[in-house]
Each structure stands twice: as structure tokens, then as C-alpha cells.
Nucleic acid binder design. Structure first.
Lengths: 123, 123
DNA sequence: TATTGTTATACTCTATAACTATA
DNA sequence: TATAGTTATAGAGTATAACAATA
């Protein structure tokens, strides 16, 4: 259900789930291709195309690394950052609706437990 | 993380996440294309191709409806059922490992709360 | 030599629109 | 007319392998 919310909100803003995920990861600051491919569980070759398509829409740019001329870092443009914020807010709003079906105590319990799992096994 | 487990296990058995999901849905018994497209949040046109590819691998078959000659129902083959069981068990095993990071009480609390949410909003 | 990122290739997934056959 | 499913088309996602440039 979370995936469907992600896909629906993204589609309404003209981005695919993978593109939305890329934007969300970049919200924390620019990242290089190798690190991105690790975070997104994607081969670098596939990432090249994904970044190409999102760059073509003006949502990210490749910024060349000052000291390593092989490398680049992917950075959100202003438009990309705006879209990212909007999509993120909307996803959270719809997920909050799902959360209202359960008692406050359960919500907090789940948050705590899952935070622990992610801390152990997460990215 | 659940998605990654799903993808990893599927790949090790030669099926994509979407194909694995199709097999899992069919584990409950044969289903028609229209109903399947609703369950999988897929357009019928896309479903045709998905079923084609899985059928080509001998994991499902189209069974024609006895009374409505337009319709067919998709059914797991013996091989498909075997693969489905194996993949399902392996996914559960790996997710159990994640669950071990949290106390038994949390696990049960999450199961109960999420079951409630799915009952409200799920498929 | 190892690493960074890209290109080439081949499939798979997905949506839209137009279509066939049957009800 | 309405419904079940397919075909056609176009774009997007993904893995593998080979590659170029730089460290």
C-alpha cells in the first residue's frame, strides 16, 4: 500500500516511483553515482539512464567533482527540491490517513520498533 | 527493505518482483485477467504481457472459462506452484531475520495493528 | 592496476489508445 | 451497448558486459 501511495503521488507530479526515490535520497545533499547506486540498489549503468531522464526534466544536475575529474555528484535543482518537498508532504499526508486507523500507542510502538530494525539492517 | 528481499529472492529463482507477486496472488486459486489487473494495480494491457512472459516459462496457464468464451482464468502450473512455495518460504525466512531484531511483544503488536490497517484500506 | 562513470544491448515493466470477440 | 482480453506503440526501468578517462 505504501508503494501504491508513492506511485500515485509521483504520477500526479509527472515522476515515476524510481525518480521520486532518487529525488528523496538527494534531499539530504548531493551524492556521487557510485554511492547513489549503492543506496538505490541499482547498477551504475542503470543509474546513468535514470539520472539522464531526471536531468532532462531539469530536476537534478551533474556537478563535477573539484579534485577527481572522473567523478560527479548529483544535486537537486531548485525545481527538483521544490517538487521533492511537495511530493514528500503529500505522501506523508496520505500515509497519515492510513495511520489514523490505529491507536496512537500502536503508531508510536511501530515507529520505535521499525527504527530499531532499520538501524540494524537499513542502508 | 522488504522490497529488496522480494527482489533478491525472486532474482535467485529467475523471476522478477512483478512475476513473483503474480505467482503469490495466484497461490489462492485461479483468477481472471480483469480481477488480476485490479489486485495488481495494473492496466489489463500490461497484464497481458506479464502473463505472457510467465506463461512462456511454464509457471502459469490460461484456462478458458467454461461459460464465457471471452474470459480466461490464470492458474499456477505444478512448476509454478512449487516455485511460488519456495520463493514464499525463502522470503519469510529472510524477513524473520529482520524481525528478530525486535522484542516478541513488538512483533505481535505490529502484526495486529497492520492487520487492522489492511482490513480498512487493503485490497 | 583500480575506480568512476558511460555506452551498448537485450529484456522487462507500464500506460494509452485502438481493436476483436463475445455477452 | 458493455465487457473480457489482446495488440500496437512508446517510454521507462534493469542487468550484463565492454569501454574511456582518471587516480
Amino acid at each position: 500500500m505504501v508503494q501504491y501511495v508513492f506511485a500515485d503521488v509521483g504520477r500526479e507530479h509527472g515522476v515515476t516511483p524510481q525518480q521520486a526515490q532518487l529525488l528523496c535520497v538527494l534531499a539530504g545533499g548531493p551524492i556521487g553515482m557510485t554511492e547513489l547506486s549503492r543506496l538505490l540498489h541499482l547498477e551504475k549503468s542503470g543509474l546513468t539512464g535514470l539520472v539522464d531522464r531526471v536531468e532532462r526534466r531539469g530536476l537534478v544536475t551533474r556537478v563535477s567533482h573539484p579534485r577527481d575529474r572522473r567523478a560527479c555528484r548529483i544535486s537537486l535543482t531548485d525545481e527538483g527540491a521544490r517538487l521533492c518537498t511537495k511530493v514528500h508532504e503529500e505522501i506523508c499526508a496520505r500515509l497519515d490517513v492510513l495511520g489514523e486507523a490505529m491507536p496512537e500507542a500502536d503508531r508510536r510502538g511501530i515507529a520505535t520498533a521499525l527504527t530499531g530494525v532499520v538501524a540494524c539492517y537499513g542502508p
